[in-house]
Amino acid sequence: MSGLFGSGSSTTTQQASNTTGDISKDVTLNSPPEDGISEITFSPQSEHLAVSSWDKKVRIYEINQQGGSEGKALFEHEGPVLSCCWSKVSHTLTTSYPQSLMLSKDGTKVVGAGADKAARMLDLQNPGTPAQQVAAHEKEIRCARFVDVPGQQTPVLVTGSWDKTMKYWDLRQPNPVASITCQERVYTMDSKDKMLVIGTADRYVNIINLDKPGEFYKTMQSPLKWQTRVISCFTDATGFAVGSIEGRCAIQYCEEKDASSNFSFKCHRQTPPNQSNVSNVYSVNAISFHPQHGTFSTAGSDGTFHFWDKDAKHRLKGYPEVGGTISSTAFSRTGDIFAYAVSYDWSKGYQANTPQLPNKVMLHAVQADEAKPRPKVGKR
């Protein structure tokens, strides 16, 4: 009987090689940032990649089908940029919304947020117009996302800060339309459909139903025991994945009826040669869900990335070390390209950030068998 990666009669060696991915043909992004890369994210409507960096810049690249890349635009902050995101438009927008302010469905606006306590937006449709400040906090802004608020006739930007607040912004107004105080500093945030999930210091996780954006739908502690690094929402918006500094990932559903499906697993850990009782533990820095298949990737301080099937609780592919820590990852809108940033992740403090460390973004062409979920099998 044929398995996912070939014949069921394969030898153990062949099976191992089938689950080991190939990065030898991955392509380097042209003209990468000059300092640490904080976040990379693809446009939801085109083959463009935004990259935010500690060199105070957000860069936008165009990616062609052969993996070639070209810088198309950039804008600057007054401090390191910690997050970037693409605009999207609410399904409830009406024709009465001013055309000059509408955030186009083709993802033509990019927001950066960072250590200058500001979020700034560049309109790629008006290349001569400089980036405009669209949000402000009392402390550094750690993350920014556009969300779909039902009934709201304007696109809404959400920013999460180390001042322990998250704020909603109507981009036509200088002040936030709403603000929520979290238990601790905001470290990570993601949104899908009506679900917004925020991870803070002290392992708090807040879930918001955007039907009621001004209140927490549910608050919980992370199922993992150590500091949260990243949260990423499932493609079907029924839950989210959490990654922590302890080399673990947790799969968490929002509703109690699905709680039996919650689980966590070890990843990004290494056993040194001839030391079977020792395990080196690495931070899980990035989790990205495939837009078509619903499978997901993890990437970490060990310099590896892996593709997983959460429903089958199975690793689909593991990839060799890439020559440096991986700080951020992203799938393209079709899932055909997986981008990963090879860049220092600050896991060892500022002393370990040397000029010799790599700063680059790699583009991996996702093959047909790499990210597809395992075939469903009947009960035994």
Score class of each variant (00 low, 15 high):
Val278Phe: 02
Gln15Gly: 10
Ser96Ala: 07
Leu82Arg: 15
Gly79His: 09
Val147Ser: 11
Asn64Phe: 03
Met362Cys: 14
Tyr168Gln: 04
Thr92Tyr: 08
Asp35Ser: 03
Asp55Leu: 06
Thr95Gln: 15
Thr238Asn: 09
Thr295Ser: 08
Tyr253Thr: 14
Arg248His: 03
Arg120Leu: 00
Ala250Pro: 15
Ser328Ala: 12
Gly67Ser: 14
Ala237Asn: 04
Gly8Glu: 14
Met189Gly: 02
Ile231Glu: 04
Ala259Cys: 14
Gly68Leu: 03
Glu138Met: 08
Asp302Met: 01
Lys266Ala: 15
Thr13Asp: 09
Val58Gly: 09
Asp309Tyr: 14
Ile37Cys: 01
Gln351Glu: 15
Glu321Phe: 07
Tyr319Lys: 02
Gly294Ala: 03
Gln356Pro: 00
Val281Glu: 14
Lys218Glu: 10
Ser301Ile: 03
Pro150Asp: 08
Gly247Ala: 00
Arg172Ala: 10
Asp55Met: 04
Met362Pro: 12
Glu370Pro: 11
Phe338Gln: 11
Ser332Asn: 14
Phe216Met: 12
Asp369Gly: 10
Lys360Asn: 02
Tyr344Asn: 13
Lys167Asp: 02
Ile141Trp: 12
Ala119Met: 10
Thr295Arg: 04
Leu29Asp: 06
Thr334Ser: 15
Val366Leu: 09
His314Leu: 08
Thr354Asn: 05
Asp190Ala: 15
